[in-house]
Design a protein around this nucleic acid. Structure first.
Length: 833
DNA sequence: GCCACGG
DNA sequence: CCGTGGCAACGCAGT
DNA sequence: ACTGCG
């Protein structure tokens, strides 16, 4: 019986594969027979071609897949005949069994023999046409001559490359093959969602690269640098597509033991140029290419097709292999995938709108959701190496809690070879007998303890209930931080998430791509259905000179547009005082409260009685509740936004207590940082959290969000009390004197007097009328501790910062604190102090 | 930035 | 036609 | 009552 060999190799008690003989012969019409191509993930990934013939399946194992236009001849090893039931078999063959590993159906369909099948199989040469769900084309199978024992070696040959999958030849539009395409990029989004309009993929942490296949292979990084030579293991990429000419999009990655990509692992390879170096690195840290899009195929531009169609085409053409893989995707279930990503310690996920075309820039059609967190940790020890690893195994990390170093978990991945050595050298002189931890951990490997002086930057998925890190990855050493300052950064966002676990928000704020505008003159812009006329876009607001970059009004509007999702929530409901700079920061600005005559009808205005001497008139204030309003206001050459400290509907009850830290010497920002920390301590005595931001000018603002329950008289009094305490602690540093002449001898004027109805401060994320267009930027307390330069935050880089770190001022929107409780807490503290 | 006013 | 003026205003504290 | 201040 021809299936004897099949039977002999298998134990049907253990393998799910079909027994021979049980199957139906199947229906067949004329000269059509059935075939299947299995993708078999055994000791090596390979493809198995099985052709129905003589009541069984003639089978070949094809280690490099089917022949393709790029690789017209590929080896095919004839293996034992399989039963017909194998046509529909898919499953996992268990460990220890013949052919152990996952067997999946990659393609199936019918084939038409183009010569006489009865004799062709025996002669060792047959030509056939495959009509599968994926493959449609003409192939020849020919037995090679070779010496003894070579009788099972065949060649699979693609007979007519130009006819392969010819049915796809009308997709897209005819175009010559482009060069230097830019990859489409995702916009950072907040909360993941589920939507039938989107598919979701894993976000890779590697090098984004477009691959051009056209005779040769070119792999281009985002900055259009050739990468193909650097990753020899990707060389046969071209041979894994069933088309001769194409452009695909994907990411080059290196994977850890868990199969998770980390850019750090690739770091050692990104600059190599020497051939032998590259070969060695490829052995030590192999690279993988995950393909997720197709932009061009056989003379046709596919970028205007919807993503869903591009995915279909890609999966028809692509034979994944060990180093060249397909990025799996799932439709609709964004939240589930995000959860999965976080569990596995993956960077995050990407949501892509299925109807969207491919665009060569950042677009909201692709949204990325980050699942990782990051902070600094003190290195308190390390474990001995295991296996092939040299020098050490993992770093033992800690954070300070009440003056003690508390163990926070260990990190054993993310080190480059070079970093491993540098770390070891840095740690060696710090070894000590005593563990530095309050409760020393007991790791599986023997540990060495260190004087807690080194600080590591680590990213991780989340804190476990036990307060340890889940999926930590080492990012780098920091030499700019005092280890004593390292504490667990309480994630306020987590609290928010927990509190908001009920009804779901659609998604968090996103940084928008710049809008397209003419370099000069006027234009109409439609924002969320609002028509806006933008004027004098080329008007220079910040002159370019030695002190700062040149920015035009278009840059201001562009900035506000991009960050609108972040700034609008901080402005919503708050009357604005306008300060307008129609002739730029060098010329005289003017104030305006009354909404200008050209204010569109849809823009929210609020008529508020003016308290001013006698006149019982009302002023129609602008209120910025939406992006379109923000853009309108920016077009008025309002460089920064001046919102009230109270919001509608109760303008008499502030929800923010503001402290304005104004250095006496404009260059003495150090004084601001120092006083901010002092203020943080004093607020802490009342159990209150403050949120710091640069003013954008010379100083710093600290906001304390409170419940909308107190009068301005109360908030002002409280601000005064806290300020007096600060002044009392550091009389050398802090003055509360209003007249400038009396501030001499102090370094900082602590202004609590702004807490009055109708008074304003420049809002968070507002650019300022100073050279270089600095932006009022929220800081983490870590940054206040370690020191920053306010001029480093400008309209040129804040969108990126927001994209990376989100809204550090989000607390001001929801962390409404109880002033009465604070006073109770503080009075206790005052009595004892 | 733009309107209203006056020359 | 052009040039120009207007476009905010609170409350505190010190005198 | 006037002024400086933000």
């Amino acid at each position: 019986m021809i299936l004897d060999e099949y039977q002999k190799k298998r134990n049907f008690g253990k393998t799910p594969e079909p027994r021979p003989g049980g199957g139906l012969p199947g229906t067949r019409t004329g000269r059509q027979f059935r075939f299947v191509i299995h993708k078999h993930d055994a000791s090596h990934i390979h493809y198995d071609l099985r052709l129905e013939h003589g009541g069984a399946l003639k089978s070949w194992a094809m280690p490099k897949g089917l022949p393709t236009p790029h690789d017209r001849k590929k080896l095919a090893i004839a293996v034992e005949d399989h039963p017909l039931d194998y046509l529909s078999f898919a499953g996992r063959i268990p460990e220890g069994q013949y052919g152990a590993g996952r067997m999946e159906i990659w393609d199936s369909g019918t084939y038409i023999p183009l010569d006489e099948p009865e004799t062709a199989f025996g002669k060792g040469k047959l030509t056939l046409r495959l009509e599968g769900g994926k493959v449609r084309g003409e192939f020849t199978l020919a037995r090679m001559k070779g010496g003894e024992g070579k009788g099972n070696e065949w060649l699979a040959i693609l007979a007519k490359p130009e006819e392969l999958n010819a049915d796809l030849g009308a997709e897209g539009t005819a175009a010559p093959m482009p060069r230097g395409l830019r990859p489409m990029q995702a916009v950072l989004a907040g909360r993941p969602f589920s939507s039938a309009d989107y598919l979701f993929e894993i976000k890779f942490d590697g090098i984004r690269a477009l691959s051009y296949v056209n005779g040769g292979l070119s792999i281009m990084s985002r900055n259009l640098k050739e990468q193909a030579f650097r990753y020899p293991e990707l060389a046969d990429l071209a041979g894994h597509f069933l088309a001769g000419e194409l452009i695909v999009d994907g990411e080059i990655v290196a994977l850890d033991e868990q199969g998770v990509s980390h850019f750090q692992l690739l770091q050692g390879r990104i600059n190599l140029t020497g051939k032998s170096e590259i070969a060695a690195a490829a052995r030590a840290t192999p690279a993988y290419y995950y393909v997720f899009d197709i932009l061009y195929l056989n003379g046709r531009d596919l970028t205007q097709l919807p993503l869903s169609r591009r995915k279909e085409i890609l999966s028809r053409l692509f034979m994944p292999h060990k180093h060249i893989r397909v990025s799996e995707w799932v439709e609709e279930q964004g939240e589930q995938i995000f959860h999965f990503a976080r569990e596995r310690g993956l960077e995050g996920i990407v949501g892509k709108r299925m109807a969207a075309p491919y665009r060569q820039h950042r677009s909201r059609d692709w949204l990325k959701f980050k699942a990782v967190r990051q902070q600094e940790f003190v290195i308190g020890g390390f474990t001995m190496p295991r296996g092939s690893r040299a020098l050490f195994g993992a770093l033992l990390l800690g954070v300070y809690e009440d003056g003690d170093l508390v163990y926070a978990g260990h990190v054993g991945t993310g080190f480059s070879e070079d970093m491993l050595q540098r770390l070891h050298a840095a740690m060696a002189p710090l070894v000590q007998e005593e563990p530095p931890f309050r409760v020393p951990p007991r790791p599986n490997e023997p540990a060495k303890w260190l004087r807690p002086e080194l600080v590591a930057q680590v990213k991780f998925a989340e804190w476990t209930r036990e307060g340890l890190l889940r999926h930590p990855v080492f990012l780098g050493l920091r030499n700019d931080m005092d280890p004593r300052d390292i504490v667990r950064e309480e994630k306020i966002l987590e609290k928010k998430e927990a509190a908001a676990s009920g009804p779901r928000e659609p998604s968090g704020p996103e940084v928008l791509p710049p809008f397209e505008h003419p370099p000069a003159g006027d234009m109409w812009l439609e924002v969320a259905g609002r028509e806006l006329r933008l004027t004098n876009l080329d008007k220079e607001l910040w002159p370019g000179d030695g002190r700062g970059e040149r920015y035009a009004k278009s840059d201001l509007i562009d900035y506000y547009y991009r960050v609108s999702d972040f700034i609008v929530p901080h402005l919503a409901g708050r009357p604005l005082t306008l300060k307008r700079y129609p002739d730029g920061i060098g010329a005289g600005p003017f104030f305006q409260k009354e909404a200008p005559a050209e204010t569109p009808a849809w823009l929210h205005t609020e008529a508020i009685p003016s308290e001013s001497s006698g006149k019982r008139e009302r002023i129609r204030y602008l209120v910025c509740d939406e992006t379109a309003a923000l853009i309108f206001i920016a077009n008025l050459a309002c460089i920064f936004q001046n919102p009230w400290l109270s919001a509608l509907p109760d303008l008499a009850r502030p929800d923010i207590i503001a402290f304005d830290l104004d250095p006496v010497d404009p260059d003495d920002f150090e004084a601001c940082l120092e006083v901010a920390l002092l203020l943080k301590d004093q607020l802490g005595g009342f159990g209150l959290r403050g949120y710091p931001k640069t003013s954008g000018a010379t100083g710093l603002h600290v906001y304390v969000p409170v419940k909308t329950e107190y009068t301005f008289a109360q908030t002002r009094q409280f601000a005064e009390l806290v300020s007096i305490l600060c002044q009392h602690v550091r009389p050398d540093l802090v003055t509360l004197e209003q007249p400038v002449s009396r501030r001499a001898g102090s370094r900082l004027y602590l202004d609590f007097r702004q807490n009055v109805m109708g008074k304003t401060l420049a809002s968070v994320y507002s650019p300022r009328a100073w050279p270089g267009a600095p932006v009022s930027t929220p800081l983490s307390w870590q940054e206040v501790q370690r020191g920053v330069k306010p001029a480093d935050f400008t309209i040129a880089n804040i969108p990126e910062r927001l994209q990376a770190s989100g809204d550090l001022f989000a607390g001001v929107l929801f962390d409404r604190q109880d002033l009465m409780e604070a006073l109770r807490l503080g009075s206790r503290f005052l009595k004892t102090g």
